[in-house]
Design a protein around this nucleic acid. Structure first.
Lengths: 165, 165
DNA sequence: ATAATTATGGATAAAACATATCCGCAATTA
DNA sequence: TAATTGCGGATATGTTTTATCCATAATTAT
């Protein structure tokens, strides 16, 4: 586990896609324009979301991305895992095996106790993010955003999206 | 927050120092030998522990390191923080400000909601590690270690340490 | 069919960061 | 005074992250 910049972009993408009218899709280029990032790089994040089954992608004219399931069923952990994978933040160097008093292999069948402790902490991290859906972010954002901006955003999204059956 | 290899080394150092007879100090070179790592690099971790007040260092002949307080009052988080600092794992890129619909500054006084969520998760991570003292690791290790190895380690530590008043 | 649009994924360049190492200096004790 | 030990800056090295480009496959409109 590590949290790169791509995660924040991917979360933004999900929140935007959550505002799409039912059945509509938004091209990656529109998302890139909205977030003001280079389109080829944002594509990387979108592909990761697509592979993870968080969004569905449609090639061709009038294609684009849409959420694969309701936004309330997509957690921040889902997005994080899609982009960063499942490798733990802490990787034991198995220091206990080294040195003049290194532990013999038969005492290293179980994971190192230090590693176990850090894994517990990561599990708590994960658990917290799993409990926060995209809709929570949307809800919070709506509380701060001016009504005017909200409407302009909605209009732009509708204009940039294409109806898909 | 990030967890580099140095953290594991530092934890090992603390567990070893916890086994010292009362009032004894262990030189950094002995610790390096025990862990089978290069002494100049281990020094970096030891200095970090020293700066953080987790160990006390004594220059000069018969000097070395010892724990600054009882091992049960040193948590895995204390050690982690000493080595990696307090920078969060997640750093917001403030993406919300960018693009044609970027949030105006007066809507960005509070931290970004995505950032807030990740900070919550980090707080849980921290809380978990804070609850695990060095003695917990020692206790677990003792359960797995053979009695013979335990005694040999104790003897080596006593031989390599110097009495300090 | 053909052309236009859009996503996919591999290859690569550039920048940032972690890791490891070295060396001179300060502090302490015999 | 000499020997031991910790401190911290400077530096190299290697890996990871970040970003970019390009050729290809898929789909739809005409």
């Amino acid at each position: 586990m590590k949290i790169g910049k791509g995660v924040e972009r991917a979360v933004h993408c999900c929140t935007i896609l959550a505002l799409l009218p039912a059945g509509a899709a938004l091209p990656g280029e529109a998302l890139a324009e909205f977030l003001d990032v280079a389109q080829p790089y944002l594509a990387k994040q979108l592909q990761a979301l697509s592979r993870a089954g968080i969004v569905t992608a449609q090639s061709g004219a009038a294609g684009g991305y849409q959420l694969a399931r309701p936004a309330q069923d997509i957690s921040l952990w889902d997005v994080t895992e899609a982009l960063e994978g499942t490798q733990p933040l802490y990787r034991s160097a198995e220091l206990r095996r080294d040195g003049p008093f290194g532990a013999p292999p038969d005492e290293c069948l179980d994971p190192c106790h230090i590693e176990t402790a850090f894994m517990q902490a990561e599990a708590e991290y994960r658990r917290t993010l799993q409990a926060i859906p995209i809709t929570h972010i949307l809800h919070k954002v709506r509380q701060t955003m001016s009504e005017d901006r909200r409407l302009r955003i909605r209009k732009w999204i509708e204009n940039s999206s294409a109806e898909r059956v």
